[in-house]
Amino acid sequence: MSNEGVEIEFTGPFRKLSGERKIFLPLEHEVTLNEFIEILSRKFGDEFRKRVLDEAGKLDADRSIIIINGRIVDSTKETSYVVKPGDTVAFALSLAGGG
């Protein structure tokens, strides 16, 4: 068994959906961000997909943000991102000002 994989952190509604704060997802090779979301959607259900993608299947910065190794994914350039073993990925509600 390989111990390669990705550390995933969940905040906000993603905690409820996954039932976890943090998980380790075995991953042996690099995948595109879209493939990665697909893997998680299969694991956690359709609700997960709906949290991240809009009706057209595109990343929606108004719904949520994805942080890969401390860098925020620019939703307008989603196809250029990959996730590889050793990465840390976080899912969160999109940010908003307070007060």
Binding site: T11, G12, P13, D62, R63, G70, I72, A92, L95, A96
Partner: peptide, 23 residues
Amino acid sequence: GPKTEKYRVYGTPANILIHNKLG
């Protein structure tokens, strides 16, 4: 809809963990 969910459910304190993650 989804665009105001952060305010409705978690309130703006939802920012704490995300901001922390981003430094």
